[in-house]
Design a protein around this nucleic acid. Structure first.
Lengths: 227, 227
DNA sequence: CGCAAGTATTTTGTATACAGTATAAAACAT
DNA sequence: ATGTTTTATACTGTATACAAAATACTTGCG
């Protein structure tokens, strides 16, 4: 048995580093590196080199790569290691079709499941996003945009739904981020968002689903050219 | 060549294709073990024991566990290893809701994407399934049932769609298999399948989506009690 | 007899070592 | 010079070894 209860089951973590296992940290680290483009699609991953760069040995790094391979962010070529997965335009389009379907489902469920406070929180995010829009702050706008979509999905109160949505979302994140839209299209996107929030507040499931549908279709049109 | 050694590689009994890496084989092996119930939900996995049982060392086994953790079939508790993930009734219901939505999408896409030969193949599977039904062969029926649903999804010609569908499908497989339905409900399921195939052959997207919808709702009703 | 503390054993987490394979480079023949 | 075989190097795949943590066990004490 543990000798003395110095701290209650380690709830107060000092450096927060040793809380999660090392491979877990590497997973999130690498995921970010891939999403942010630090590791580019098609790039081969050399375990020794990357491990040294991250200051870890090959074992936990390899475990992290297996995890990311299952997530679909890297590809494992037998006897030839890991490569950052590259997606074709069709892949991205197919992903967005599925994401669209998932968000429509999420919207319908959210209209039933969400509490008034939940919806109010989304509204707050939306208002903040509009402020960033009016100031032309693209990065902040983008981040809140993501948060709103993820937020609606989480309102559906369905862990599997949130999971598969997040899975696909992480793959297209990088591409969407790249896609910088012109002023008039940007304005259109904001208007669509306004209607989305309105439908959610009215708990009008079908309208919400329809608005999400058109919004995501238009979103694809907006970034299509850059893929 | 100097690589003419035919000393057995490690302790492996090599009956399998050494084309795939060892951890890859372990992944499929463990996945089957979990789906077929050989490893039961909530069961803790001891790496030494399981590794010895499979005749592999801990390293590739751990890598396989990371992969399966990302798939959601096992849970990784820090410093306490892996346990086979257990799903609540709500989890299963939520998964089936998502699966239903995905299959409806797949059906709609399939009506556009599939070739006549593709549809004919599904019809053949269906006819074979009906034969097994009339002979009361539950296991064969079940397998073909699965194949048909997976088949329709693959007709949509969307890799991400097939992927997320398969991901969720693998989790509920075990539960669905357990669910042995009574004769009258079984008959109902077969009738629904007949209508599904009909709609697919007619390439009537909305009817197909609607039939898949009710079929999967009913399917959940059928197994609900046993979860 | 109950219970807490200290010790032992098991198990996980990480690093290192070695074997096999693919890739790059060099030597040779044409 | 060019194409091919040989040799060297680098990298991945697997196994083993060691350290830290957790669980199980035993002992001491009330």
């Amino acid at each position: 048995m543990a000798s003395e209860v110095f701290e209650p089951v380690g709830k107060r973590t000092v450096a927060t580093i040793s809380r999660q296992s090392l491979h877990g940290e590497i997973v999130t680290r690498l995921r970010d590196m891939i999403i942010e483009g630090e590791l580019q699609p098609g790039e081969r991953i050399y375990e020794n080199q990357l491990g040294e760069e991250l200051g870890v040995s090959r074992t936990p790094l390899r475990e992290a790569l297996k995890f990311l391979a299952s997530e679909g962010l890297v590809e494992l070529v037998p006897s030839r290691g890991a490569v950052v997965k590259r997606f074709s335009a069709k892949d991205v389009e197919d992903m967005l079709i599925v994401i669209r379907s998932l968000e429509m489902l999420a919207g319908r469920l959210a209209c039933v499941q969400a509490s008034d406070e939940d919806i109010a929180r989304i509204r707050q995010l939306h208002d903040a996003m509009v402020n960033h829009y009016s100031r032309g702050e693209r990065l902040e706008y983008y981040k809140l945009n993501q948060q709103i979509h993820t937020g609606i999905v989480s309102l559906a109160n369905s862990a599997p739904l949130a999971e598969v949505h997040g899975l696909l979302q992480s793959r297209v994140k990088r591409i969407r981020f790249i896609g910088h839209e012109g002023a008039e299209r940007w304005a259109g996107a904001v208007a669509e968002h306004e209607r989305i929030i309105g439908a959610l507040e009215a708990r009008d499931a079908e309208t919400l689903a329809r608005e999400l549908d058109t919004h995501l279709v238009n979103g694809w049109e907006r970034v299509k050219s850059v893929v």
